[in-house]
Amino acid sequence: MTEHLDGNALAGPLGELFTVDMTSATGRCASCGLTGPVASLRVYGPDPGLVARCPGCEEVVLRLVRGPGSAWLDLRGMVSLRLNVPD
């Protein structure tokens, strides 16, 4: 059985790091090219870290580990990210 959450669940942890909502940003998977909102990724965790995978190919797109006083964010599985930024 798959027990993942949606990318929506990243909203709080990423909201600690960024001022814009990252879950409605559009990203492109580095392995298969699928494009979609961060909210549609498959999220595993939260412990030991949040791991977001592509719904198309299941490759890791994003990892986020939160330690005391530091956060580690790895976006290696994402080619680019389009953010909604107010003018």
């Binding site: 929506n8 909203a11 709080g12 909201g15 600690e16 909502d21 879950t23 409605s24 909210a39």
Partner: peptide
């Protein structure tokens, strides 16, 4: 409480 969060759902 931390929030509100989530701009997609």
């Amino acid at each position: 409480i931390r929030g509100p969060v989530g701009g997609w759902f």
